[in-house]
Structure formats: structure tokens, C-alpha cells
Computed example of a mutant assay.
Amino acid sequence: MSRLPLTIASWDYDRVRPLLDGRVKVEGCDVNYLTMPVEECFERAYFHGEFEVAEIGFSPFLIALSRGPTPYVALPIFLSRMFRHSAVYVRADRGIESPADLAGKTIGVPEYQMSAVMWFRGYLQDEFGIKAADINWVQAGLENPGRRDKFPLNLPEGFPLVARNDVTLSQLLADGAIDGVMSARAPSCLIDGHPKVRRLFPDYRAVEQAYFRKTGIFPIMHALGIRRDIHEKHPWLGASLYKAYLQAKRIADADLVEVTALKIGLPWVSAEYEATQALMGADFWSYGLNDANRRTLAAMARYSYEQGLATRLIDVDEMFANGISETRV
């Protein structure tokens, strides 16, 4: 029987490199693995359907799922997870000393729908009572003008969001035309040392650790998706991918604790790994639908609905291809 030719696209994470270099195989498949920045991957996957399997932004996925069949069927393989307190950049001359001071301010975002921004808006509402409509939003490209939504927005009439295609968020922030930016990438004006641009949380690590202690949530940004036509034609593929990605992540995890000769180029990587496990548990970056991931996904679904993204509240059990989490490795 011939093997299924399969093109997979994602960013070049440590947890996928065993698939890239052939140490881990996908059962029944001949894989052509393409690595690219996530923005390019999302654009080509959502708008052009170029890849049989691709990394997908989970916030746009939930938006699509709330409205009907999705272009990609999601697997509980969470390629990107990240606390996003570090992703907020503000003017130092606007009296913004805490998240509570963001109410009434004008904040730029590359996409209103993006996972990083959705997570921080949820934090603002849960911890400070600031709703999405309490902030004036400007959507624009971070460093290049123009960026389009993957799905139509579902915001109420009069919602304070303006799209700009003539300027970048970094320039608006540097010029003082907006009060802050929420972005997965740091704006160049911060990197270049603009004297009036800083992070909202200079010690974001401590703030993020405190957030985890309180909530038990490790935010999910991206998952892996199988293009719907491929999933329907080859229903076995999801289990093969889940097993392969879990094996690859285990190899990456082992590299973090190798002390004979460090495989990761940080002198105290083992100490950091041990400290993270002490706070978050042994399998802190887990795949599948364990209790911790269900808590995180349920919060994400609630935020998406409350913020006018998803058109209905989605249950965790309808998010993923059936039976994948029960696959044994």
C-alpha cells in the first residue's frame, strides 16, 4: 500500500525538529515539512489552503468553528503556548502604570482576533473589570501597513475599533498617536530604544508566574490542523500525527535536562526547567485534553464569545477531531 504524501507547515520549534530531521516518522505518511514564520503559515493556510497539515491560530479557529465547518480540523497538539503579559507596550507619558489604567486608552493591535490579544483582554476583564468595549482599538500592521482579518468580525454596532491600512502600529506608538500596542512581536520602536515606549510589565516573568499560581492557566496560542478534505478522506491521519508530535516533544523535553553537554545554548537551562516544573508541574507543556488543558481551553472559549469573536460559546469537546486524546503512544 502506498504511503500518503503529506505537506506540513509550521514554525521551526524545538518540539517539531525531530520530525524535520527524520528522527520521528508519521505513520503511513511521506512528509514534506515546511518551516516558516507563523504569520506566513496562517496566511497561506487560511486564505489559500496550501497545506494538508498546518499550524493554526487557535483564536481564529474558534471563530470559524462557532460559525460552521472549519477549513482545518484541529488536533490537541499545542505548538505555541505563551503568557502574554509581556506582549503589552505602552507610552511612558500617558500615566499608564497598571492594567487598570488602560481603560479609555487607544491601543493598537495587528489583528483584533489574534490569540495573544484575546488572552490579554480576557485577563483585563477577569482581573480588572475592563471590558473590550472600554478600550479604543486600532487595527494595523505592526511593521508593514495593512493586515486583514481571517474571518469577518462579529462585533456590535458602534464598537470602538478602527482599521488603518496607511500606517504601522510601531510608527503610531512612536509618534504618540496611540497609547499602547498589544502584539505577539515587540514593536521596532521599543527595540530601537524609543525613550517614551516601554513594556507595561517590565518584570513580566514575575507577573506571569503569579497569574499561573492564581488561575492554573498556561495560555494556548496555536494548535495543529488537518485540512478538512484530507481529514475526511483519511480519518486515521489524526492519530498518526498526534503520536508523532508527542514523540517529538518528548525528545525536545529530554534535551532541556541534558547536562553532560548542553544541547540548549543557555548556561542555566536545566535550573530554569526545574524551577518551571516546580511551579507548573512535570508536564507543564502538555498535549491532549487533560484537566489543565480543559480549563485553559474553556477560558479561551469564554473569552472568544464575550469579546464578540465567536458567535456562540463553544464546548471543549467539540473543538478537536474525535478520539485523538485517547491515542496511546
Score class of each variant (00 low, 15 high):
Leu279His: 05
Asp315Glu: 15
Lys249Gly: 06
Glu143Ile: 05
Glu272Trp: 12
Ser59Met: 05
Ile56Ala: 02
Ser183Asp: 12
Ser2Lys: 15
Pro187Ile: 07
Cys29Tyr: 10
Leu102Pro: 11
Arg228Lys: 10
His194Gly: 03
Phe201Gly: 00
Val16Gly: 00
Pro267Cys: 01
Leu161Ala: 01
Asp166Trp: 10
Gly323His: 07
Phe120Arg: 12
Asp253Gly: 01
Ile251Thr: 06
His234Asn: 12
Gln139His: 04
Val259Ile: 12
Asp179Ile: 05
Arg185Trp: 08
Val31Ile: 06
Gln113Lys: 12
Glu318Ile: 04
Pro99Gln: 09
Ile56Arg: 00
Ala74Asn: 01
Ile77Cys: 07
Thr7Ile: 02
His48Gln: 14
Met280Val: 08
Glu258Cys: 14
Tyr211Arg: 07
Leu75Trp: 00
Ser188Ala: 13
Asp14Arg: 14
Gly141Thr: 03
Leu262Asp: 01
Ser188Val: 13
Tyr112Gly: 01
Asp149Ala: 09
Pro76Phe: 04
Pro99Ser: 07
Gly193Glu: 05
Leu237Ala: 08
Arg44Leu: 13
Met221Ala: 14
Gly265Leu: 09
Asn322Cys: 09
Ala252Glu: 05
His231Ala: 15
Met114Tyr: 09
Val73Leu: 05
Ile178Asp: 01
Ile217His: 05
Gly104Ala: 07
Ser325Trp: 06
Leu142Asn: 01
Phe218Ile: 11
Glu127Asn: 06
Asn293Gly: 08
Val31Pro: 02
Pro156Trp: 05
Leu297Phe: 10
Gly68Tyr: 02
Leu256Trp: 11
Ile130His: 07
Pro202Ile: 07
Leu6Phe: 03
Ile77Ser: 03
Ile107Lys: 01
Gly238Arg: 04
His231Pro: 00
Arg205Leu: 11
Ser59Thr: 02
Phe212Thr: 06
Ile191Arg: 14
Arg147Cys: 03
Leu65Lys: 15
Thr70Lys: 07
His85Asn: 12
Glu274Cys: 11
Phe83Asn: 11
Gly68Arg: 03
Thr7Arg: 15
Glu143Leu: 12
Ala116Met: 08
Phe47Asp: 12
Ile130Asn: 09
His222Trp: 00
Val329Asn: 12
Gly180Trp: 06
Ala244Trp: 11
Asp134Glu: 09
Pro202His: 02
Asn144Lys: 15
Phe51Cys: 01
Ala54His: 00
